[in-house]
Each structure stands twice: as C-alpha cells, then as structure tokens.
C-alpha cells in the first residue's frame, strides 16, 4: 500500500489512499468491510440489497399463491392448510417483515437519492429506522392480526 497519488492525468477519489495491485495498477483503496468500522448506514445499505433479494423470492411465493387461487377451491384448501400452519405463518411473518423493510429502507434510499438527509445525524437516524423499524412494525402487525382473531395458531 502506498499513499502516493496516481500518475498525472488520472483522477483521484479524494481519499488520498491508494493501493498498488500485483499487476502494477494503482487504484484507490477499497472500503473492505473488514478494515472499516461498522456503521449503521452500512448495515441499512446492505440490508436493502438483502431486502430486494428477499422481496424477489417473496414475489415468486406470492405468484404461486395467486396461481393456486386460480386453480380452484380444492387447491386453495390444501395450500390454506399449510399457510395456516405454524411454519406457514412463520413464512408470512417473514414476508411482512420484508415488505416493511422494503417500504422503510426504500424511503430512506429515495430521500438520500434526492440528495436530502445526507448529514451525519439524519443519515444515522434514517438508517436506524430502516433497520429496526421493520422488525417492530412486523411484530405489531401480527399482534394486531392475532388480537383481531384473523389468524390463530
């Protein structure tokens, strides 16, 4: 690792930290997660990618559910028995968590993309909300569902 900036003509990244790779290229040092101190904004950012992945799987599951509804009452009854079982409810709970995460973390992303809320205090606050909010809201959602008698174990 060297701290000498790249040759004239190349543009720097303003960090002033450069690494000479085995092939001789001088490049800005990458923010490897194992040498950077973990921060809430990193957690929120990574979790949004995880959420998009989980939402893609969730979309396939929901498509399967719509397809089953389109297959008539018998098919629906057999799937309803599974989706009402403890494991089925566990999957539905996961999907509501993913949906809340998509909404809160997506809103954080949109606000930051608009160039707003990028100061340390707002960025930290929005990251905290985007990471912890979905868990709290998903649990509340299911507490209300059980309390309203819509689902039961």
């Amino acid at each position: 690792m060297s701290n000498t900036p790249p040759a004239a003509g190349e543009t720097g990244d303003r960090t002033g930290r450069y690494v000479r790779h085995p092939n001789g290229h001088v490049a800005p040092m990458s923010p490897f997660t194992d040498i950077w101190r973990w921060h809430m904004t990193m957690v929120a950012s990574i979790l949004f990618r995880v959420t998009i992945g989980a939402a893609s799987v969730g979309a396939v599951l929901l498509l399967g559910w719509v397809a089953i509804v389109a297959c008539g009452p018998d098919a629906f009854a057999s799937v309803a028995a599974f989706s009402g079982s403890p494991f089925g409810l566990f999957i539905w709970f996961g999907l509501t968590w993913v949906l809340f995460s998509f909404l809160l973390n997506g809103a954080r992303h949109l606000i930051n993309d608009a160039g707003k809320g990028l100061d340390l205090k707002s960025a930290n606050l929005m990251a905290q909300i985007a990471v912890w909010g979905p868990i709290v809201l998903a649990v509340l959602f299911w507490v209300v569902l059980f309390a309203a008698g819509k689902v039961s174990l």
């Binding site: 309803a80 949906l99 909404l103 997506g106 809103a107 819509k150």
Partner: peptide, 24 residues
C-alpha cells in the same frame, strides 16, 4: 419505480391485513 412502489406497498400491506385468514 421505487417511488411508485411506496404507496403500492402500503396498499399491499393493507390487502394482507384484509385477506389474512380469508376463505376461498
């Protein structure tokens, strides 16, 4: 697309609440 999905996502949430435990 993400902006459009914000209100649509809220609507999906309310739909989930409506249809939870619903019969065929």
């Amino acid at each position: 697309a993400l902006l459009a999905l914000m209100p649509l996502g809220l609507w999906v949430l309310s739909t989930g609440f409506t249809l939870a435990g619903a019969d065929y």
